[in-house]
Computed example of a mutant assay.
Amino acid sequence: MLKGAKILVADDELHFRKAAARLLEREGCEVQLAADANEALAQLSAHVFDLLIADVHMPGNDGLTVLREQQTVPVLVVTGDPSLQTAVEALRGSAVDYLTKPLSPERFLARVAEGVARARALRRLDDAERRLEAQLELVAGLRASLFVAGGERDDEEPDAASAGASSASEDELPAVVADKLSPREREVLLAFRRMPRPAEVASSLHISPHTVKNHLKAIYRKLEVGSQAELLAHLSEAERAHSS
């Protein structure tokens, strides 16, 4: 079940990183290691992973920062902190499970397998949703071409209200940002700016949170940012430049 899974282990304890890597590689996983949160975020920006295994307490930015900053990879939190408050904070982020050290290899691998299975299931769902979106866009295009071919509304000019609404809609994102994104990615970014939680964006756009996270990952890549904070800062800077 774990063969071929791409996993990032982020923990400041060298012993745990090495032990986890040995166990996972023995199961056929491809493993990358990070000693702190900043290194983990850099790895997440540069590579695609099925699962992130992260401690909560690390030097510099902690593991909770990683949970807040990235919303695309499921996270298994493995930590020596047994407090309920920390567990709640982790599970409010992108954590799929929360384990306290020490733990047996069997329990560790079982939870990793569950996390990877969930990630793969979500990816299949996302692929299905992308195919459905492509089909819906095709249907919309065919419908529009039939209107033109039939001469319906072909010679009508848009009224001032609709033209103004269209202009306002186009102006919601600066051109330097909008031109780099697909129509769906622009919708996701506009919704994300209003409510920066994937679950809320998903609800407003009637898609799954996993699909939102994948769109955000594509947006991060196209806009060359590595986190939610960088994305919002980049958008604010582009808007200031656009209005000046």
Rank of each mutant, 00 (worst) to 15 (best):
Leu14Cys: 00
Val48Asp: 09
Arg26Glu: 12
Asp81Tyr: 13
Ala113Gly: 11
Leu190Phe: 01
Glu172Asp: 02
Ser203Leu: 11
Glu187Trp: 01
Leu33Val: 10
Ile219Gln: 02
Pro74Phe: 11
Phe147Glu: 14
Arg22Val: 11
Ala21Cys: 12
Ala175Leu: 13
Ala42His: 09
Asp127Ser: 10
Pro105Met: 06
Leu99Gln: 07
Ala218Phe: 01
Ala95Thr: 04
Gln85Asn: 03
Leu136Thr: 03
Asp154Gly: 04
Ala95Gln: 00
Ala229Ser: 15
Val9Trp: 04
Ala218His: 05
Ser203Val: 02
Glu239His: 12
Glu106Ser: 10
Pro105Cys: 07
Val48Glu: 10
Glu13Ala: 14
Ser243Glu: 14
Leu173Ala: 05
Glu157Pro: 00
Ala163Thr: 09
Thr100Gly: 01
Arg186Met: 03
Leu23Ala: 09
Ala119Tyr: 01
Gln228Phe: 00
Arg107Tyr: 10
Lys3His: 15
Asp171Trp: 05
Asp12Trp: 07
Ser243Ile: 11
Arg130Leu: 04
Asp171Ala: 15
Glu114Leu: 14
His206Val: 11
Phe147Val: 08
Leu52Met: 05
Val31Ile: 08
Leu52Phe: 08
Val9Ala: 02
Phe192Glu: 00
Arg153Met: 11
Ala233Tyr: 04
Glu156Pro: 03
Val96Thr: 13
Pro74Ser: 11
Ser162Thr: 15
Leu64Lys: 08
